[in-house]
Computed example of a mutant assay.
Amino acid sequence: MKTILHTSDSRGTANFGWLNSYHSFSFGNYYNPERMSFGALRVLNDDTVSAGMGFGKHPHDNMEIVSIPLEGDLEHKDSMGNITVIKQGDIQVMSAGTGVFHSEFNKNTDKEVKFLQIWVTPNKKNVAPRYDQISIDEENLENNLYQILSPNKDDDGVWIHQDAWFHLGKLESQNTQTYTLKDKKNGVYAFVLEGSISIEDKVLEKRDGLGIWDVEQIKFTSNEPSKILLMEVPITQ
């Protein structure tokens, strides 16, 4: 097993007043040549947007973009004609493909919105742009690793153009889970949303990330009530 630890306080930061963002990998004005990506996982941004504020219309292409709201309501508009609002419990995906414009705004004028924006490098270029979102039942996360993303449109969760699988888990204290990789050539990036998780000999606190590869199974235990996001992605492109 090989690992790389990214503690919460080692992430890049950007604060524009209306936006406070933490970058696990190089993004925008944050550049770290040692933290360009974890395989196909190119961006993991932990964003807080002030009431009524947001990202104006901007372009993307040839990227799989996943948004996971953690708190509040995020309004999405795009050049495909989609106008939607996502909130905690929703998973949003957009295949930018040949090109798409979109905007994201805090729907509420009285409270912040917090969400993860995740970019995954696709295994197919110049696909037709696509949008989808789902709502998951929080009960499915209880002491379980629940699949929220895969490469298969007939599987649980949303799907993307990449051999990647994401799982969410909400664990009671001292709950132990074992994750078996779908492809032993892949790696897993574990990101602690809440609480504290022990993975092998490492303890991860809130918003710490751990990249793991050269392994077929990963065993971890919650040290307190915790929530974790596992992102399995190809290591080599």
Rank of each mutant, 00 (worst) to 15 (best):
T3V: 12
L5A: 06
H6M: 13
S10T: 15
T13Y: 15
Y22F: 14
F27I: 03
S37T: 07
F38C: 00
G39L: 00
A40Q: 01
L41Q: 01
D47Y: 10
A51F: 05
K57F: 15
H58N: 08
H58S: 08
H58G: 07
H60D: 10
L70V: 03
E71C: 09
E71K: 13
G72V: 04
L74E: 01
G81Q: 04
G81R: 04
N82E: 07
I83Q: 14
I91Q: 01
G97F: 03
S103Y: 11
N108W: 14
D110T: 13
T121R: 06
T121I: 14
P122R: 02
N123G: 12
N126H: 12
N126S: 12
V127C: 11
P129F: 07
D132N: 11
I134K: 04
I136E: 04
D137M: 09
E139K: 12
L141T: 08
E142V: 13
N144I: 02
S150A: 05
S150Y: 01
K153W: 11
D154T: 15
D154K: 11
D155G: 08
D156C: 13
W159F: 15
D163P: 01
G169V: 01
L171H: 00
L171W: 01
E172D: 15
S173G: 11
Y179P: 00
T180S: 13
D183H: 10
K184N: 12
K185N: 15
G187W: 01
F191D: 00
V192C: 02
V192I: 10
L193R: 02
E194A: 14
I197R: 01
E200N: 11
K202P: 05
L204W: 05
L204I: 10
L204N: 03
R207C: 08
D214Y: 09
D214V: 02
S226H: 02
L229I: 14
M231F: 06
P234G: 04
T236L: 10
T236F: 14
